[in-house]
Structures are given as structure tokens and as C-alpha cells.
């Protein structure tokens, strides 16, 4: 069961900060411990930056999760940018086409319980992450 909560636009680097703050607030609401909060906020920061830099901007949607008493938080990052031609390659540490260290995607995946990526060249990218309590 998921409750849609909020949608945040990602257009500037200040928006990345806004995503971090919103994710933090929701993670606390979902009852995540401090380390888990920090992990999902960091993952969200990485992915929001991806959306901004490679996807030419987009949005982040936050959902609270509830499953048999377990609570969690899901975030969907979506852009209409150029898409990712080779997802496996993009997930590898050290791979980068931009100015980061190439830890964005692979690193974010390690920080989440669920990680799902859908992308097609020319159509954009949608990355879904979740962290459970």
C-alpha cells in the first residue's frame, strides 16, 4: 500500500537541497532510524543530481509505504532527458559522462532496499528507490 505524498520539481541545484529536506522529513515520518534516513537522503541527493544534470531536469515523487506493519519510503525520479543507452554500464562504479565521480547510480543503489531503473534513449529515465524500516 502506498500513499502519494508530494511531487518536487528538479530544475536547479537548490532543488536538490529541497529534495534532500523533503526526503529527510518523510523518512523520519516513516520511522526510519538515523542511519537509514541518512542513506535514503544521500541516495535521493545523488539521483536528484542525475535528474538535473543528465535528464535536464525533471521531478521527484515521494510516497509513504505500508506493508504488513512495515513502513517505508519510496521515491520516483523521472525526467524526459536523453535516457541511458547502457544501464549496466551506468550502474558500474567509476562510470561517468559528467563531472561526478561516477558513483551516482551504483552508489545510490547500494544505499536502498529497492532500486529500479527504466530508461530508453530519447524518452527519458525513471528511477524508483525505496527504503524500508
Amino acid at each position: 500500500m502506498a500513499t502519494p505524498r508530494s511531487t518536487l520539481q528538479i530544475r536547479t541545484s537548490e532543488d536538490i537541497v529541497r529534495v534532500r529536506q523533503e526526503v529527510r522529513a518523510r523518512a523520519i515520518e516513516a520511522g526510519l532510524g538515523l542511519v537509514d534516513q541518512t542513506k535514503i537522503v544521500t541516495a535521493a541527493s545523488e539521483l536528484a543530481r542525475n535528474t538535473l544534470e543528465y535528464g535536464r531536469g525533471g521531478e521527484a515523487r515521494l510516497e509513504m509505504l505500508q506493508d504488513h506493519g512495515r513502513r517505508g519510503l519510496r521515491i520516483v525520479f523521472e525526467d524526459r532527458g536523453p535516457g541511458i543507452p547502457d544501464i549496466d554500464q551506468a550502474l558500474r562504479d567509476g562510470f561517468t559522462t559528467g563531472k561526478g565521480m561516477g558513483l551516482g547510480l551504483g552508489g545510490a543503489r547500494r544505499l536502498c532496499n529497492e532500486f529500479n531503473i527504466v530508461s530508453a534513449p530519447g524518452e527519458g529515465t525513471r528511477i524508483t528507490i525505496a527504503r524500508w524500516k
Partner: peptide
């Protein structure tokens, strides 16, 4: 902070 350090390591940094 500890939580930050744990996360950075997990991130691969």
C-alpha cells in the same frame, strides 16, 4: 557524524 560516515563508505567514497 557516524551515520554520515557509514553512508559515505556504503556509497563507495
Amino acid at each position: 557524524r557516524p551515520a554520515v560516515a557509514i553512508t559515505l563508505v556504503e556509497l563507495g567514497l
